[in-house]
């Protein structure tokens, strides 16, 4: 009963549904958003959402401290979240996969160097790294992607390293080497295809983590500087208004939790689909 209701297919479909909806929202933001997310209207400050007393259908989710329409800001915030989340995931995936492939395939001193560096980096908090970067360069979308991308590489490096090392001595790889396949040929033709499925799962789940991190950094003021409409910025503004206008923070919070939940569902469903034994966890 339980399994059939919350099985892998259910997870994949529900997760994919949320992800597709969010992506559409981001792509069509200029057409869907009722207002310009930066347009201020000081006469209509801190209006509550329509379902609360004093709310109107004019601003469905209410307005913030500057009279900006919250719904429009949230819709545009989807763009930043998805873009930063995907781009930084891609960056750390590429960095980490290359490092892990090299370390696992070459072994020896290179392996020691790369893997010990990964261990050291693992212990170092992303937020601290972001603080250093923000102190050095200030906040921008590019810096955000760079910071998040660099701070996530070692997860992939460890994963790919472990897989490569266990696959290296399997017969088909040794056969390819004995036929005179070059290093790069063997790595890309024989090792990579083995790794791609599990890498896809980890990368999917990583996007959710990256979105959370992006929101956290924005919340701390280390992301895109205000008034950029990011969920973290909205949440930070909402924090200062949480007594008079709790809806600001809560709307942003629900938006974050929705996309993260969707991606986690999709990723876990995918993992169970690819590896039925993983359901035990």
């Amino acid at each position: 009963m339980k399994r059939s209701l919350f099985g892998k297919r259910f997870k994949i479909v529900l997760g994919a549904g949320i992800i597709v909806a969010m992506c559409l929202l981001a792509a069509l933001a200029p057409y869907l958003a009722p207002y310009d997310p930066l347009q201020q209207d000081l006469l209509r400050r801190l209006k509550p959402p329509f379902f609360m007393a004093g709310g109107t259908a004019k601003n469905l989710l209410g307005t913030d401290n500057y009279g900006r329409d919250l719904l429009s800001r949230l819709i545009f915030g989807t763009q930043t979240s998805i873009m930063v989340g995907t781009a930084s995931m891609a960056l750390s995936c590429i960095l980490g996969a290359i490092a892990g492939l090299i370390a696992g395939y070459k072994g020896g001193r290179i392996e020691q160097l790369i893997m010990r560096f990964a261990d050291a980096h693992m212990a170092f908090p992303d937020v601290l790294f972001a603080i250093i970067m923000a102190a050095a360069f200030g906040g921008s979308t590019f810096n955000l992607i760079l910071v998040l991308g660099i701070s996530g590489w070692m997860i992939y490096a460890r994963l790919v390293f472990g897989l490569v090392r266990s696959l290296k001595h399997r017969s088909f790889v040794e056969a390819a080497v004995s036929y005179g396949g070059g290093d790069r040929y063997v790595m890309s033709r024989h090792l990579l295809p083995q790794i791609v499925p599990i890498l896809t799962v980890v990368a999917t789940l990583q996007v959710a983590q990256m979105i959370l991190q992006e929101a956290a950094l924005s919340f701390l003021g280390l992301g895109l500087p205000p008034p950029a409409p990011t969920w973290g910025n909205i949440l930070a503004e909402g924090r200062d208004r949480m007594f008079g206008a709790p809806w600001i923070a809560n709307c942003a919070g629900i938006a974050i939790i929705l996309i993260v939940f969707g991606i986690n569902m999709f990723g876990n469903g995918l993992r169970e689909y690819l590896d039925p034994q993983a359901k035990q966890r």
Binding site: A208, L212, A216, A249, N264
Partner: peptide, 29 residues
């Protein structure tokens, strides 16, 4: 087991900075 595990998995999607704000709204305000 079902309740706690489900709650734990769901909680992994919860951004802690929003959780903090929710706790303030509920327990303090």
């Amino acid at each position: 087991d079902f309740l706690i595990s489900t709650l734990a998995v769901a909680a992994q999607s919860m951004p802690s900075f929003w959780l903090g704000i929710l706790l303030i709204q509920f327990f303090a305000v």
